[in-house]
Each structure stands twice: as structure tokens, then as C-alpha cells.
Design a protein around this nucleic acid. Structure first.
Lengths: 241, 241
DNA sequence: CGAGAAGTTGAGCGGCATCAATTGTAGTGG
DNA sequence: CCACTACAATTGATGCCGCTCAACTTCTCG
């Protein structure tokens, strides 16, 4: 349990442009901690008391049904924030959170955010900006699940990953293991494996473990984006939170 | 193009608890209009200048891919609000809106809301409340699409409709036609038809056009909710926006 | 009453899940 | 350092759910 500096927080979008004293106050109640893979941060239905920022590693948000089936809602990476949408509601987490890859997580009390939001319009507006963005992403997600094939969903993910790394960079690194990626994209590991090798044939990319090499994104994008409502260099889709 | 009274607006959640003068100002820029079925309010990609409130009828929000496939994002009913999540972004509508059933729609300028949001923290907080709710609903939607069968998705919709009408009321009325409902639930009309009759066999309900009679919700809920992460009387799911 | 759309029903098919077997890989302890 | 174990990843066989195409019936409305 280490302390967190205001400077570290100031990089997070929802704390943009805040007065130093506000930032200090928020930072004074923040704690950061290293969690190992497999650690459960909270379970669906728990009373929500904190929201979190991922400093490193990955966090899986998911929900389980009575029969044990697990749906992955999202997988979060560096500087992503989660739990901040529980300002109202009945204050129970709508999903469970598990550390998917060992890393550092900052936890902050929701009560602070709630209090601040009523007093400080900047925070309210920042939150609004973050959450409307998220909402739009969810809509896209829904469209993709519906219109794209498993193979296209992988291609779409790879393209956005490539755009995020560096524009047109021909080396894509899978950010986490394939099982998690498959779950994140709403398919079985077996399907993922088969779909990836189909993509390989169709686009001529070379796969070496977690590294994927390709000469140009063209073949990938024409195959993938044919059944999407957004024209290819879909820059508005690459940033989250 | 008729004028809108402040009293009419005060019923909408995002305008809750506002000062009368603010409400008057907002109302003074609002217009209501009757639109016929099939009318397109805006198209995906248009510059967003208004947000809307449904006073009657139904509105279909959807997106189209290059190959013409249409994904229904949502279907809105009385007192639902849409377009209010475009306060930031590049100000383009992320989906198209079409009148699915003739009705009265109020349109309001987004610029007002944007301006007011910065000045008036109550509005910002109200918006935040509305949009976090929406976000949580989208998560559920995504889960349902993934874990439930087509038949269960219909059952789930019927249950929430029943809860919305009156607790445990054994008569459910389909709010709009079956083609639209099928699209809303992410399936083809043929699949809907078959799934509904399967549901009829499994739960013993009686279907007469848009009216569905059943003695108790028990059989329906046990069949439907077995693959859901929320225990049955899922009251938090019945209200939107 | 007729035209066109909504809704139903049947036949066939394809994508993805499931089950099962095998290989690859990373972490553990002797 | 290597053998052992556990899990990740791949590959094959099979089956089911929902999509597609097509024909037919029912409903709605001018």
C-alpha cells in the first residue's frame, strides 16, 4: 500500500485541468498496490466503495451467470480507469474484476468522487466526457459482435492495436494471452486459434508467438472493415476511458 | 412545430430539480413536432445539433454497414431521451434515427445543453446519472446477446415488459411490431417467430396478436433467467435513460 | 376488395461451440 | 539443470443454433 502523488493522477483524463489543491486532496486518499495475476478485486454484487486506475498489468471485468458461464465485459490496460461509473445506482459493482496480469493498481474512494462531483463542475464534466466516450464504444462493440465474423473481430482488434502503437507500424504485439483475448472478443479459444490462422492465410501476415508482422495494413483492413459502419482509419476507436 | 412548456420538460430525469428560470430558458428553445413512421431524424455521420425527447411513438436508433446490414442500437419510447450523449466528441451522430411509429418528438439544441452543463452543475450531475445508467444497460445488453439464446432473449424482454406494466400482471403487450422487436433483440424475424412459439410451448403462455396472457411469471422466469447474472425480479433493468 | 407488408413455416446451410486428443510452453521443485 | 506438472494453444470431429432463401398465410390500409 503505497501513497500516490498528485502528479501521477494529473495524467488521467478525468482529473484533467483540476486545481492543485483538489488534486492533492484526491491523491491523499489514494493508494497503490501491486496485485498478482488471479487476484479478485471485487465481485459482482459487492457494495462499491472504490474506483480504480490501472498503472500496469491488465484487469479483466466480467460477469458470471448461475450456470457458471463467464462473460468478459472489458479488459483494461495502463491508465484505464474503472468503477467510476458507480456514482449513483445502488452502489453495487455490476461486474467482477480480476487481475489478468500482475501489475500496479491505484484505488480511490468513490465517496470522494461523489462529493467532489457535486461541488466541482470540472470533475462532473470530465466524468461526463469519459463516460459518454465509453458509451459510444459500447455501441460499437455491440455492432461488431453482431455484424462481424469471429475472424473479422480479431482483424479489427489487431488494426486498432497497430494504430495505437504507431501509425501503420507493421509489427503488432498481442497485449495479453490468447485465451483472454478470445474471451474479450466474445469467442472460444479454439475459435480464436482457427480464426487467426484463417486471417493469416487471407492477409499474408506472419505470426511469431505474440508478435505479428505484416508489410502493410491494407489487406487486413479491406478484409476486416467491409462489414463495419466506420471507414478504416477508425482513429476515434483506439482510445478508451 | 409547436412550443414546449417548462412543465412538460420537468418530468424528464435530466431536468430534475432545476431552477424554473433555467427550465424556462431551455423550454424556449425547444420545439415539438409530429413525425410519421419512416421519417429519418438524422443519419449516422451527420453533424449533431439537437438532442431529442420522445413524447409518443417509437424511435429506432440504428447503424448501417457498407454492405447494407442494419444493426439496431436501441428502440426508444415515451419519455426516453436520445442524442444527449453528444456533448463532446466530434459532434457527429454515431447512429441514425428513424421514426418507427408515428409520434411526437421534442427537439432541443445541444449547444444549450453544452453551455448549461458548464455553468450549472445540477445539469451535469443529472446527465451523468442518466448516462451511467445507460452504460450499465449496455453492459447487460452485451451479456444477454452473448449468453442467452434467441428464445431466452425474448423471454427476458417479455418479463421486463411485464414488470414495467404492473408487478406480476399476467398480460403483456408487445410495445411495437415483431419485425422491429426482432431487430431490437438482435435476431431475424423468422427466428423471432420460431423462438416465440417455442417459448409458448415451454411456458404455456397464450398469444393473441400483440397480447400475451400467462397465469404466472414463474415458468417464464425460470426458463429465461437461468443464464443471466441477475436474479429474477430484475427491477434495476426495467427503466431506461 | 386488392396490393403490399407483416408474419409464419419449411428446407438447407454455415459458423461457432463443444468434446476430445495432442503438442507446446512456462513455472516448480528436486 | 532437468524432469515434472499444469496450463496454453492447436487441430480434428461432430452437432446445434440461427441465418438465408423461398413459399405461403394473415393482416392492414388505401
Amino acid at each position: 500500500m503505497d501513497d500516490v502523488t498528485a502528479a501521477a493522477l494529473s495524467k488521467i483524463p478525468i482529473f484533467n485541468g483540476l486545481e492543485p489543491d483538489v488534486l492533492d486532496k484526491i491523491a491523499s486518499h489514494a493508494h497503490q498496490n501491486t496485485y498478482k495475476k488471479g487476484k479478485i478485486l471485487f465481485i459482482h454484487g459487492d457494495i462499491a466503495e472504490h474506483y480504480y486506475i490501472v498503472k500496469s498489468g491488465h484487469v479483466k471485468l466480467f460477469r458470471e451467470t448461475l450456470d457458471g458461464t463467464q462473460t468478459v465485459i472489458d479488459v483494461l490496460s495502463e491508465n484505464d480507469i474503472f468503477g467510476h461509473s458507480l456514482l449513483f445506482e445502488d452502489n453495487r459493482y455490476p461486474s467482477s474484476a480480476e487481475i489478468a496480469q500482475t501489475g500496479v493498481i491505484i484505488s480511490l474512494p468513490l465517496s470522494d468522487l461523489r462529493e467532489e462531483m457535486y461541488k466541482n463542475n470540472d470533475i462532473a464534466v470530465n466524468l461526463l466526457r469519459a463516460i459518454t466516450l465509453q458509451l459510444n464504444h459500447k455501441d460499437r462493440e455491440l455492432e461488431h459482435r453482431f455484424t462481424q465474423s469471429a475472424t473479422q473481430r480479431i482483424g479489427c482488434f489487431l488494426l486498432r492495436q497497430a494504430l495505437k502503437d504507431k501509425t501503420g507500424r507493421p509489427v503488432i504485439t498481442l497485449p495479453y494471452d490468447k485465451m483472454l483475448l478470445a474471451a474479450r472478443l466474445g469467442m472460444q479459444p479454439e475459435t480464436f486459434s482457427r480464426a487467426l490462422s484463417r486471417l493469416k492465410k487471407k492477409t499474408g501476415m506472419k505470426i511469431e508467438g505474440a508478435c505479428i508482422h505484416l508489410d502493410t495494413l491494407d489487406r487486413l483492413s479491406t478484409y476486416t472493415c467491409s462489414s463495419c459502419s466506420v471507414k478504416f482509419p477508425c482513429k476515434d476507436l483506439i482510445n478508451k476511458s
